[in-house]
Amino acid sequence: MTDLTADTYLPSEGESGLKRAKRIDRRRMLFWVLPPTLWFFVFMIIPYGMLFYYSLGSVDYVTFTPGLSPANFIKVFTTEPYLGVMLLSAKLGLFTAIFSAIIGYPLAFYLAFHAPETVKRFVYLLVIVPWWASYLVKAYAWKTILGTGGILNTMLIGAGIIDEPLTIFLYNQFSVTLTLVYIFTPFAVLSIYAQLERIPTSLIDAALNAGATRWEVFRKVVFPLSIPGILAGAVITFSLGFGDFVAPVLVGGPSSLMISNIVINLLGVAFDWPMAAAIGLVVITLGLALISVAHYLEHRFQHRL
């Protein structure tokens, strides 16, 4: 590697040396590019290809018949309940993204600008530690908090605020969103923090020196610069929320069915792999579109710091 750089950048070596270096460079590039390409091919292209192959076929009772019919894709958009469930999943995913960002931002802000080094490390750990506990355990915990005989109701009754336990906390879209926000907020915190940390303090000092108030500094300098971080976090939390299937099962109500639950159902008890594959591909396409839009926006708001 050192030889190579020396070759490339030493002008005295002349034309032939440069050519040789480029050739070696190309060969090495092939060596480095091959594994990811192979990985991409085996784990992305082939599975998606198979998904596509399945989605065009049909299942008759116990046998899969390959075909070339777009019927399953048409069904995704025209037959109940697929599109409706996808929209509901998107709604819950959006709520997850918004609330995660709202909750995550102040913490990320504190971590980036105010926390002393030792506290920072500790808080950082606190954000990550819940990930050591199983998702299931965390979702179950919300059951014991929000349930009719749960901690929240017991406290409210104890405080004399209500007489009868309320059933509105659990087994509905609220509890699903709450659980998703709780579980995925760390992603928002970390991605916003990463962005905020890149903002040089000299920028803030300059703004303050120029007479801006602290609020103006936040509104006109810090916040606009942090938008790419918010967007990156939102894409992650939205995707995780959208594709979740555990929270609806554990804390969801009779109407909180999400699209991944449908896919599981189709792959399992319904034995309708083609339909499941079609839904999967539609979701992947929507995901790609979303990521592209977010990517474009991130770049629009990204400033060289």
Binding site: E80, P81, S255, L257, I262, N265, V269, F271
Partner: peptide, 18 residues
């Protein structure tokens, strides 16, 4: 059930109904 997929489809529709 021959129409099992259909049964499950209406079941999903019921669960998805708002």
């Amino acid at each position: 059930v021959k129409q099992r997929a259909k049964y499950l489809e209406i079941w999903n529709q019921v669960k998805a109904a708002q």
